[in-house]
């Protein structure tokens, strides 16, 4: 393989990885804070993608601006989801919690099928076909925008976690729930915010992604799976781990696609998952290490 092809694959892998990280970070936040495994995470991404598509098609809103419409809606969904479904589910055993979020995942997929039909939809604008040369390699404009937004948002997310009271509250709740309650921290309120922010990040990712990727009612499944791979490979509940896991998955996929075939590339994240589980079951960056 020539070095240009390698660089091209590396760049598109990093671009995808940045977007994956934005999708996975909400999942890891919800898991880290609440210890809830949300199998419906990808379905909320799917809804956010439809949101971006509808805003563009019916209101003529640019996907970049649609973020400001869709993200608050997703945050509200997270808020309502907590009180409507997750809060009661916290009282039942973990296996039942999984059944609840898995059921929600399927429910949302089939509701989306009823409302939107099975068509593949994409936002196409003038800039959709534009691209930018970075030295010898090329990056598509929609991917570039989504990746750049991801990097900015992950930075903001990190600063929120490290520098604000809300961030500190979420970190301490994830370490000791009772210790946090005895520190005067409202646990349910924290859970609600974690859920709202966790889904809110999807409200940002969705509209940007629907310019680069077709949306259909089942598009979320793949992202839930990839987000799980990323979160587990990175080390459950660790922010640094999500970044490393996401870039690793993105680059591995992309290199496999250019060396081998697209179908091999699709299997790569899961091969990676099995490999990490066998060799380093605590993940690459265990939650204790880099918080």
């Amino acid at each position: 393989m020539s070095s240009t092809i390698f660089l091209q694959a590396l760049l598109s892998g990093l671009t995808n990885g940045a977007i994956y990280a934005l999708v996975a970070v909400g999942l890891t936040l919800v898991f880290g804070v609440m210890r809830i495994v949300n199998f419906a995470h990808g379905e909320f991404l799917m809804l956010a993608m439809y949101g971006g598509y509808l805003a563009f098609t019916f209101l003529g809103v640019d996907p970049i601006l649609a973020v400001f419409l869709v993200a608050p809606v997703l945050m509200l969904m997270g808020y309502l989801l907590f009180d409507g479904l997750i809060r009661p589910a916290l009282k039942v055993p973990e296996i039942n919690q999984m059944a609840v979020t898995l059921g929600l995942s399927l429910l949302l997929q089939y509701l989306a099928l009823v409302v939107f039909k099975a068509d593949n939809l994409l936002v196409t604008q003038e800039r959709s076909t534009a691209s930018i040369w970075l030295g010898p390699v090329l990056i598509q404009m929609p991917q570039a925008i989504a990746a750049l937004a991801s990097v900015i948002l992950l930075g903001l997310f990190y600063l929120t976690l490290r520098k604000t009271d809300l961030g500190l509250i979420m970190r301490v709740v994830s370490q000791s729930r009772d210790g946090a309650a005895l520190s005067g921290i409202d646990i349910s309120g924290t859970y609600r915010w974690a859920m709202a922010i966790g889904l809110g990040t999807l409200g940002i990712a969705g509209p940007l992604m629907v310019s680069a990727l077709y949306v259909n009612p089942h598009v979320g499944q793949l992202f839930t799976l990839k987000a799980f791979v990323i979160v587990i490979v990175g080390g459950m509940g660790s922010f640094g781990g999500v970044l490393i896991g996401a870039l690793l998955v993105g680059v591995a996929e992309s290199l496999a696609a250019s060396w081998l075939t697209a179908s091999v590339a699709a299997a790569v994240p899961f091969a990676l998952l099995i490999l990490v589980m066998l060799l380093r079951p605590e993940g690459l960056v265990p939650a204790g290490g880099s918080r």
Binding site: L168, V172, Q175, S176, D178, G179, A180, S183, G184
Partner: peptide, 19 residues
């Protein structure tokens, strides 16, 4: 004790003053 082991001493203290 139920401390927050991954947080610094200052963070442990500050976390109890968010209200």
């Amino acid at each position: 004790r139920m401390l927050f082991p991954e947080c610094t001493v200052t963070e442990n203290l500050v976390a109890a003053s968010t209200f």
